[in-house]
């Protein structure tokens, strides 16, 4: 099943924890249930960002590695 995203944010090159912070700020600007696609660097961002988003109640639908980057699909919390 393909999940369509409502918004995209490329956080490659943004250091931790600013990447997680920017993802949270963007998710909070979306309506509940909308999906945000995130692109992250490999390494610490691929761990810290999804964990932080889950802690705030957002749902990580996809967390997938693509060569040297990670793609996350995150549903904004209700």
């Amino acid at each position: 099943m393909t999940i369509e995203s409502d918004d995209r944010l490329d956080l490659r090159g943004v250091r931790c924890p600013a990447n997680a912070a920017r993802a949270l700020v963007r998710l909070e600007s979306l309506e509940a249930g909308q999906v945000l696609e995130l692109t992250l660097d490999d390494g610490e961002p691929a761990v810290l960002v999804p964990e932080s988003l889950r802690l705030e109640g957002h749902e990580v639908l996809l967390h997938e590695r693509h060569e040297d980057r990670w793609i996350l699909l995150v549903r904004a919390r209700g």
Binding site: C16, P17, A18, A20, A21, R22, L24, V25, E28, E44, L48, E51, S52, L55
Partner: peptide, 15 residues
């Protein structure tokens, strides 16, 4: 800081 308290502070900064 790259722990969760750092994330919350960074969120305030980025907002």
């Amino acid at each position: 800081s790259t722990h969760v308290d750092g994330v919350w502070a960074a969120r305030a900064l980025e907002l």
